[in-house]
């Protein structure tokens, strides 16, 4: 049985797709057969972040409509063994995904995969609800910023009331907080919410803190998930998060700004 993990946030632009790509790649690098599904129908982008946009032939909606089978649709990653991408459809039909169709595809994928990562669209509409409905675990991607934290709390409410597990009254969806675009220097200046501020408000266990990093844009420019770049703080922070997801205890890094020398302090650089 595969573990289904939704990457969600409510707010757009906080790093859901970047995170889906990095975490999915990390899980596969650790030897787990993993598929990342793009649920953002009409606004497909996971393929670009994963660098496989020119290899898309069929998509999620084609599988649901029986126009293609899973093997034709899944794109095998060129860099990592055991990693596959299921692209979203570019159709403008909002109702292209159906709950029954999604369930059927997830069931079929569950037979061969160990991890299924569902990259949710922004918002709290049907697309986002469909992405989280079947989840066993949820990674809530949040920026240390008021609108993102508030929206994360909304999405947590939906996970706790509208997911399959919530409706059937079983074990609750396991929630993880992933703080992205974290800038320790600004936190120290009192200009940004700290990790503990966000933890206090959302009250869910912390999976990782990804520092704001130029490497993230560079990685998306090149279509190579940032976790491949282990020389960067963001890449290392994602690796740590993957280890924690797999049950390992890893100390948190990159929470403090690098210490400035006396000269830099004086001139305020």
């Amino acid at each position: 049985m595969a573990k289904i993990i939704v990457v969600t946030s409510g707010k757009g632009g906080v790093g859901k797709t970047t995170t889906s790509a990095a975490i999915g790649t990390g899980l596969a690098l650790a030897g787990n057969k993993t598929v990342i599904i793009d649920f953002d129908v009409g606004l497909r982008n996971l393929d670009l972040i994963m660098g496989c946009e020119r290899r898309v032939v069929y998509d999620f909606v084609n599988v649901i409509n029986n126009e293609a089978n899973l093997n034709q649709t899944l794109i095998k990653d060129k860099r990592v063994e055991n990693l596959f991408v299921m692209p979203a459809s570019q159709t403008r039909d909002k109702d292209a995904l159906t709950m029954e169709g999604v369930e059927k595809v997830l069931e079929e994928l569950s037979e061969t995969f160990e991890f299924i990562i569902c990259d949710s669209p922004a918002g709290i509409e049907k697309g986002a609800q469909m992405a989280l409905y079947f989840a066993d675990e949820a990674i809530v991607v949040t920026n240390p910023e008021v609108s993102s934290v508030r929206d994360s709390d909304r999405i947590l409410g939906i996970l706790q009331s509208k997911s399959k597990r919530a409706e059937q009254g079983g074990e609750a969806v396991k929630e993880h907080l992933l703080l992205t675009r974290y800038n320790p220097a600004r936190v120290e200046e009192g200009e940004m919410l700290s990790v503990s501020d966000v933890e206090d408000i959302l009250a869910i266990p912390l999976l990782g803190v990804i520092p704001e990093s130029e490497a993230v844009l560079k990685a998306s420019n090149q279509g190579e998930p940032v976790i491949h770049n282990q020389d960067t703080d963001a890449g290392k922070a994602y690796s740590d998060a993957v280890k924690r997801l797999l049950g390992e205890e890893v100390a948190f890094r990159f929470l403090n700004a690098p210490k400035k020398g006396i000269l830099k302090r004086l001139i305020g650089a």
Partner: peptide, 21 residues
């Protein structure tokens, strides 16, 4: 600090929205 203002505002609005939920 603006961060502490942000935290305070968030705590109030989130608590309010949770009761509505």
């Amino acid at each position: 600090s603006s961060a502490s203002v942000a935290k305070e505002r968030l705590q109030i609005i989130v608590a309010h929205e949770r009761t509505q939920r």
